[in-house]
Write a protein that binds this DNA or RNA. Structure first.
Length: 285
DNA sequence: ATCGTAGCCTGGAGGC
DNA sequence: TGCCTCCAGGCTACGA
């Protein structure tokens, strides 16, 4: 499941493989794979040169030489793959982009179709140039532009639980269910802890934990539970071995040995240690 | 404005 | 064996 570290691995791969290349054609094989302007995307891409590959949170984009950008969100199962021309099509191939040279083509493959591509103008947000549709999302914690004081102030104003808050991309971007659980465990915070009860030092500790776990995951190529997350060469990451709580129901807490619990949360799961992360008396869901 | 939830989607796992 | 239900979960739309 691609969160910030996984998307960064893909971004880096695209930067290496497509920067400076000129797009020859684009082919859309599934209508849901392109949002807003599926019919014109091929025309918008044809003949454009890719400048680089950029990212904020879980969004990545390729700035183009006409000032627009090809933006991608991988959703749950999206992959960006580089493959030689003529390689057999994947079962869930959604978009194919070919280049005006002999190098590999770029493919957007997505089993569950939660991901999408889009050609969009660029705008300004948080001191950076980003695609217009995502100017509302906050900087991610690995960005220079991330403003810890502003984040702390905004967080304390929220009337909700801490996990719900850090999954809100308008407060902090790039954190998904896996790294939220890992960061909360490292900071010894229960997911339902009311945001307004957190002190600035505790928020700072949580942020440091989020940065640390995501940086470590990046160093191991990201987290792959199944074949759904892979880099541009189709290779899995192996940070799943280093996860402390996520997906480890009933396994011992690496810190104290208490069996990890799984709670239902927002129609999905939260993993935590009952001893290190006691349930707050006045928690919020 | 703020907060919380349903629904989108496919395929693997597990129950019967 | 095959059918059924559950589960994974980021984001948008929408209701309170």
């Amino acid at each position: 499941m691609p969160e910030l570290p996984e998307v960064e691995v893909v971004r880096h791969g695209l930067d290496v493989w497509v920067s400076g290349r000129t797009i020859e054609s684009a082919e859309v094989l599934h209508p849901r794979a392109v949002r807003r302007q599926e019919g014109v995307l091929p025309d918008q891409l044809k003949g454009r040169r890719v400048e680089s590959a950029d990212r904020r949170g879980k969004y990545l984009w390729l700035p183009l030489d006409d000032g627009a950008a090809l933006m991608a969100h991988l959703g749950m199962s999206g992959q960006m793959l580089m493959l030689p021309k003529g390689a057999p099509d994947e079962k869930h191939l959604r978009v194919r982009v070919t280049f005006a040279d002999d190098g590999p083509e770029m493919r957007f493959v997505d089993q569950r179709t939660f991901g999408h591509l889009m050609v969009t103008p660029l705008g300004i947000s948080g001191g950076r140039t980003v695609p217009e549709p995502i100017v509302h999302i906050a900087p991610d914690p690995l960005e220079e532009a991330f403003d810890e004081k502003a984040f702390t102030a905004a967080l304390k104003k929220r009337q909700t639980g801490i996990k719900r808050a850090i999954l809100d991309q308008s407060l902090i971007s790039g954190v998904g269910n896996i790294y939220a659980d890992e960061a909360l465990w490292r900071a010894k915070l229960h997911w339902a802890r009311a945001t307004e009860t957190l002190t600035a030092p505790k928020i700072s500790e949580l942020l440091a934990a989020a940065r640390a776990v995501m940086t470590e995951a990046l160093g191991q190529g990201g987290t792959s539970f199944d074949s759904l997350y892979v880099n541009v060469n189709g290779e899995s990451g192996y940070f799943d071995r280093s996860l402390s709580v996520y997906g480890r129901r009933d396994e011992p807490c690496p810190r104290c040995g208490t069996p990890i619990r799984r709670d239902a949360f927002m129609n999905r799961s939260s993993y935590s240690c009952p001893t290190c992360q006691p349930r707050p008396r006045n928690g919020r869901w």
